[in-house]
Design a protein around this nucleic acid. Sequence first.
DNA 1: ACTAAAATATGACCAAGAGTCATATTATGC
DNA 2: GCATAATATGACTCTTGGTCATATTTTAGT
Lengths: 211, 211
Amino acid sequence: MGISERKEREKEQRKNDIIDAAEKIFFKKGLNNSTMDEVAKEAELSKGTLYLYFKSKEEIYFEIKLRAINILNRMFKESISEYKTGFENCFEIGKTYVAFLNNYSNYFKVMVYFESTDCKICDFKDKCENFFKEDNPLNSFIQIINQGMADGSIRNDIPANVLAQSLWAQTNGILQYISTKQKIIEFTGVQAKDIINSQFEIIKKGIKNEN
Amino acid sequence: MGISERKEREKEQRKNDIIDAAEKIFFKKGLNNSTMDEVAKEAELSKGTLYLYFKSKEEIYFEIKLRAINILNRMFKESISEYKTGFENCFEIGKTYVAFLNNYSNYFKVMVYFESTDCKICDFKDKCENFFKEDNPLNSFIQIINQGMADGSIRNDIPANVLAQSLWAQTNGILQYISTKQKIIEFTGVQAKDIINSQFEIIKKGIKNEN
DNA sequence: ACTAAAATATGACCAAGAGTCATATTATGC
DNA sequence: GCATAATATGACTCTTGGTCATATTTTAGT
């Protein structure tokens, strides 16, 4: 028994090592400009071995996305406080998401990638599609909106599920814009943080309970 | 003289024919699953000829994005009315953007692609980066926000440039979410249109002038 | 300690497909 | 009609994701 457990651990460790190596390469050169040979070299393994642990290049990239989501979710959970209202926690989460973009922009880019690319043959689609049933940032956020509706700090004429997804999607949009449209932002002579603050301003007015 | 003009026209026409063919193929199978040989066959040309008119596969895809943006911009301009307030026009544009997603979802996907993918060697980067100086949907939208601040229907404590980009990015986020996260939306038991309406609700409260 | 079987690792190899280029065809202008 | 320029072709190259027969290492039974 002890042996098969150890094997399992080692296998997990090996997978992690490969993802570590892939991260280094992909973050430096971008997914499209990185080759599996480079990843193999970085991981000090042969290319064939990579395919013993992962089905495809894209699946490794997906594993990086999972890391990203876990980091973000952990940050979310650390940022909320039971002593604050749902309304306040909501903006703590917002600020935290912005911090995530600033501190982990590479991870953010990976997340964005999977929002918009047609995966070739997504054999790991199940992983993709079942993910939302689990503990993830969006679910953490929905809970906060529920809290805010329960404590009366957030308007409750829109279902929590709907409001949460709407805010979530909006915020994703803002962060994606900030991270990909620096040139435009610069050209229009404004600051990224102003755009973010502006969104917070709008949402503050937009979701506060007025009763 | 007449001849070189005609040649120019024919060249333009040929380019368009190629983009037409590429659209058919790319829309049906997605960019990654389409080959240049397929595009060439659809265009009734040899592959080499394609490269006489475009630098790369991705550049053709980019041309499709330009079409998308032009369609969207035309729709925006048709949807606004000088007899409406900026506030009202702002939501006309929002509704139009939603209609664009519904009627031209393929074009929308192409637009999203370029928001999030590291182009391999963007030889057409100039085109990319200079685009925002021209007549485009975002600029049309900025004008409407300006109108609304001038006519007093939209709050003016945030610079128009900032507010416009913020709203623009948010809305992109919502539409992207709707178009890529159907599964999640379904799972949470809500309707896409509810999420959209919710965003409009939030923004209405968020940007109206309260003086 | 020895050995057969299982698990893991290797890298030469394959296939697909983007992009090129010498050659061929067609159009232009004299 | 002919020389030159413009346009078109498709066989070819080269990169790279993914495979597989072979080799090495580990495990477990005797």
